[in-house]
Amino acid sequence: MTIALRLLATVVFIGSFFFLVREPISLVWVVGITLILISYSNKMVPEASPILVILLCVISLFWVNSMSPLWGDGYEEKLNRAQIIDAANKEDMQQREFVSKAQYAVKGNLKDPSSAVFSSDYFYSSNGNTFACGNVNAKNSFGAMTGNKRYVSDGTSTGSYVDDGGAGFEEVWKLRCRN
């Protein structure tokens, strides 16, 4: 009976260890108390030490589950939150990649593309069309910085426009860059 209990206590301890890693402080006290119980096992009733180790592991698992859900509704909510965060991060990354592509396209329409400094960039999507909008400051033909000029881009150089002060750009801005 004692050997079976000790074997069961060992299996429970090793299995619990896998889950207790989620809350490292629990490992400290579970391992510490288990070592104390093992060292004093010769002074106790032979069955007491394995039973106390099993009880300690079970209590620790419930404590860890309250902090970082391992099972139940809390675990399902945790998984749902993780999926929502992953989807938002993926969407954000796609938007950043599109804005970067649009900046590259806008640079193709500038006199000195290497001098371009972008600011206030954002992503806009409407009716299945996507646009990047923002400001660009770049050198003109005389080598002077022009100051921030608004830009609109669909990610291609033919669909990229920099504000030249004309009324045509204002219409494009209103249609494609509602912020």
Rank of each mutant, 00 (worst) to 15 (best):
S141G: 11
V152Q: 05
C57V: 06
R96W: 05
I54H: 06
E47F: 15
A102C: 04
D112R: 03
K78V: 01
S157I: 13
W63H: 13
I54C: 06
S49T: 14
N140P: 04
K107A: 04
S160E: 01
R150T: 05
I59P: 06
Y40E: 07
V45M: 14
S66H: 14
Y40H: 08
N135A: 04
S66G: 15
V162C: 05
M44Y: 06
T130S: 14
G147T: 02
P113R: 00
G155I: 07
S120T: 03
G108P: 09
P113I: 03
C133T: 01
L110I: 12
G128R: 00
Y40A: 08
R96V: 04
N148G: 07
Q83L: 08
F131Q: 02
C133I: 00
T156L: 10
F98D: 02
A138I: 05
D86T: 15
M93W: 09
S160G: 03
P69N: 01
L110G: 11
D164T: 13
A102S: 06
C133Q: 01
M67C: 15
V99S: 04
K149T: 02
Q94D: 04
S153H: 01
G155Y: 07
N65F: 10
P46W: 12
N135P: 01
S49A: 15
N80Y: 09
N137F: 06
S115N: 05
V136T: 06
F62H: 12
M93K: 14
Q83N: 08
K78P: 01
V152L: 04
A105Q: 02
L56F: 04
K78Q: 07
I38E: 10
E77I: 09
T146P: 05
V106P: 00
S39W: 12
L110W: 07
Q94M: 03
G72F: 10
D121M: 03
A102K: 02
N135Q: 06
D163K: 07
V117A: 11
M93S: 13
Q95G: 00
S153N: 01
S126D: 14
E91M: 06
A87P: 00
K139R: 12
S126C: 11
V117R: 13
S49I: 11
